[in-house]
Simulated assay, not measured.
Amino acid sequence: MQTAIMTKSWAEEILSWKYEPPYDFYNDHNKEESMQELLEEPYFAVLDDGGALIGFYCTGTSAQVPLGLFYGVYLEDSLDIGLGMKPELTGKGMGASFIRYILNQLKTTSSSVRLTVAAFNERAITLYERAGFRKTYMFTGEDMIFYVMAKTI
């Protein structure tokens, strides 16, 4: 795998991704605003060895769920990360190497990382727990529960 700064072409591809229920929560419904965020915030494309887009990750406030700020779940010093994998690649056993790769990219940036995940996404939660993340907070949004998970790297 390799990392590259997000381009408009990759951002367009990401915004076209469609996840099957219940993961369709992650489908993008505000493409113009999302395009701006993907290109202006710290977003990175993750490519396979042949240069094809397989996923992305972001860091900082872009990785935070805004409602979590209200609950104060991001007050502790940690690098927030967000990530997504191409829908056709999810559920195929590639998640462990994907998250391991991203964490290796961030080792020189921070000693601890934090992510926020929707509680229904048991598949991702299991992956994150296997990667060493532990639930630290829970908060509720509109019809959605979120877990904040942290890990020392």
Rank of each mutant, 00 (worst) to 15 (best):
A11H: 06
A11K: 00
E12M: 05
L15Y: 02
W17I: 03
Y19Q: 09
E20G: 03
Y23S: 06
F25E: 09
F25T: 12
N27D: 00
D28Q: 09
H29P: 03
K31Q: 15
E32G: 00
E32H: 10
E33N: 10
E33V: 06
M35C: 12
Q36K: 15
E37K: 15
E37G: 12
L38M: 05
L38T: 13
L38E: 03
L39H: 02
L39F: 04
E41M: 10
E41F: 13
P42V: 03
Y43K: 11
D49A: 05
L53F: 14
L53R: 14
L53H: 15
Y57F: 14
Y57E: 07
C58T: 14
G60H: 06
T61A: 11
S62N: 04
Q64E: 08
L67T: 14
G68A: 07
G72T: 00
G72R: 02
V73I: 09
V73Y: 08
Y74R: 05
L75G: 11
E76M: 14
L79T: 00
L79W: 05
D80H: 15
G82F: 01
L83H: 07
G84V: 07
G84N: 03
K86L: 00
G91F: 13
K92S: 07
K92G: 00
M94P: 02
G95C: 04
G95S: 04
A96H: 10
R100C: 06
Y101V: 00
Y101A: 08
I102F: 05
L103M: 11
L103R: 06
N104F: 03
Q105C: 08
K107S: 09
K107C: 00
T108F: 01
T109N: 10
S110K: 05
S110N: 06
S111E: 09
S112W: 07
S112F: 01
S112N: 15
V113H: 01
V113W: 08
R114G: 06
A118G: 09
E122N: 12
I125F: 03
A131F: 03
A131W: 04
A131S: 15
A131C: 14
G132V: 05
